[in-house]
Design a protein around this nucleic acid. Structure first.
Lengths: 209, 209
DNA sequence: ATGTGAATAGACCGGTCTGTCTATCCGGGA
DNA sequence: TCCCGGATAGACAGACCGGTCTATTCACAT
């Protein structure tokens, strides 16, 4: 719990499909239960504030299973952030597949944040929280997620025919960051709705009407 | 280090004036040395990551002095945030006392952030970091600082004759939050300069020209 | 029925954390 | 000179941390 550098975090965890298709309501494998409860606890209370004892107890998993599956708490944290990135991307793709307008797809980022903010007790951006709790070196899934977000914004703005898509994308991302930070301070979604308005206005101003 | 609720944090620490005016280069009182080194360490490494042993060692102060002066680590943390709020206000007041334009005074917030970001190793907003590390209950100096920042923005926008000063102030604060968050992610001042541009543009758009 | 590998419970380790305690030291005022 | 408040060093307690280890149990395939 000091480095969080290149820990293993190999493809150990499996996807949340039923391991026994015949039996329904069967509990998933220990590695999956671990990652699920760890993700929930990390999101709600922070990473450093949650010890492995609590994760093991709430997951109903033995101590040795954690270390045989992941190897260390750092690797579990990395797996949590990696899966968070993957799930966030999937959630956004699912939300925008019915949408046509590129601008609407951009604003969907704010809509999704408004949905999840109350569920996460208004703890703001989990990637930013992780970067705050481990300020030493950049965390790979965090920078990957941000790269994806920024490049997605650029693509959509390009698709919408916006002038200076790179510059506008950076502005939208800055607004997105500020919206989530504000929701953490105020324990409210107001700043996210405000950020949505601001993003829409800035995009509109750079659209050839 | 669990609650950080209403700990004492009375007026124990004294201001950084020389305790012995005759002798120059005399080391300040232990309480002051403690708060100084604690502030530096908290800002650079985070609050939970810095133990009192390290603070005591780097400050050259005995263990008992910490607990006789502040009573607990939580109280020391609270004193750190309280003085941070006070110093930030003073620093801004000193920076704007030569300025006339209210808009320039607003942009000074971004200028000051650009100055201090590299010194703080691009750890972003210390108030946001504290809120991240202690998400249970709102921290009094943090909400006080944000209230001051927002009301100052409203006053200055009102003075500048902006339309809808409250709404614009909230937008500027959101941009400010996003700028500092971005500087933490990218370890750069670029997002702060970008935020400065965005704030200037939004204010300009609401000014009766 | 048997064997095998995974999962379990739980003791245990060394280290670190905050906080309390005792004992000593020093410096300045009566 | 004496004394006393504040500062010092450092041992110590109690809790918790991440991580290792042993021994047992369980499910499942042969």
């Amino acid at each position: 719990m000091r480095t969080l550098a290149e820990t293993s975090a190999a493809g150990i965890p499996e996807s949340p499909k039923n391991p026994e298709p015949s039996k329904n309501a069967a509990k998933p494998a220990p590695a999956r239960r671990l990652l699920d409860t760890a993700s929930a606890l990390f999101a709600e209370h922070g990473i450093r504030a949650v010890g492995i004892d609590r994760i093991l107890a709430e997951a109903g998993v033995a101590r040795a299973s954690l270390y045989s599956s992941y190897g260390s708490k750092d690797a579990l944290v990395l797996a949590y952030l990696d899966e968070l990135d993957k799930h966030d991307r999937q959630r956004w793709h699912a939300a925008v597949e019915t949408l046509d307008e590129p601008v609407a797809k951009i604003l969907a980022f704010f809509d999704l944040a408004m949905q999840s903010a109350p569920k996460k007790n208004f703890r703001g951006c989990q990637y930013a929280n992780a970067a705050t709790e481990f300020p030493r070196e950049p965390i790979e899934p965090v920078v990957a997620h941000r790269r994806w977000l920024l490049s997605t914004l650029v693509e959509l703005l390009d698709l919408a025919g916006a002038t200076e898509p790179d510059s506008v994308a950076r502005r939208v991302q800055l607004i997105y960051d500020g919206a989530l930070a504000g929701s953490k301070f105020e324990h409210s979604v107001e700043s996210i709705t405000l950020g949505r308005e601001m993003a829409a206005a800035i995009i509109e101003a750079h659209l050839p009407h």
